[in-house]
Amino acid sequence: MLAANRHQLVRFFTGRTGSVAEAEDVVQEIWLHVGQPPKADGVTGEPGAGPIANPLAYLHRVGMNIVLDRVRANGRRQRRDAGYVDATTSTVGAEAIDDAPSAFDAVADKERMARLTTALTGPPEGAMRVFRRHRIDGASHAEIAAEFGISRSAVEKHIAVALRHLRKALDD
């Protein structure tokens, strides 16, 4: 499955990451996440995760999360390198790790939480309500559509609108 679509995935993730080398890494990691090619003893390579309606979409989706993790990790590293995060560091095994966040971080974190909460309860109310049902309560798009009597694509639009506003609110 993965081998057959490897080219397409590498192409997509080259666009997503901006680098062919990173895209290759990501596709390799997708492989890790979804299973292995069949082994000689007949154990199949399909993941034990139940039926997958559209394997190619699934592979993209798994890869998107891998990239997101990398982007977030890079962001944290850059903040750390820039000295924004002043944490005590200790060593466990061979890895230096950030331990307890400093008091400075705690204050910054509290402010950020307050801004997030304000934005999430602010306008546009309808979109934010849908977004909260999804992201805070964990309801699926389909559940929200049924609950509010709107179409799935309307749910998507509400969520997109909410994301735009949140991005703007947190940016200022």
């Binding site: 998107m64 997101l68 982007v71 977030r72 962001g75 939480m113 307050a114 997030l116 909460t117 999430l120 309860t121 909260r132 992201r135 805070i136 309560d137 964990g138 994301l163 949140l166 991005r167 947190l170």
Partner: peptide, 19 residues
């Protein structure tokens, strides 16, 4: 956008407590 959305999802429990 994706990082912000992930951050909100990650902090969902804490945010829910403030809502």
């Amino acid at each position: 956008i994706a990082v912000l959305d992930a951050e909100i999802g990650e902090r969902a429990a804490a945010i829910a407590a403030l809502l």
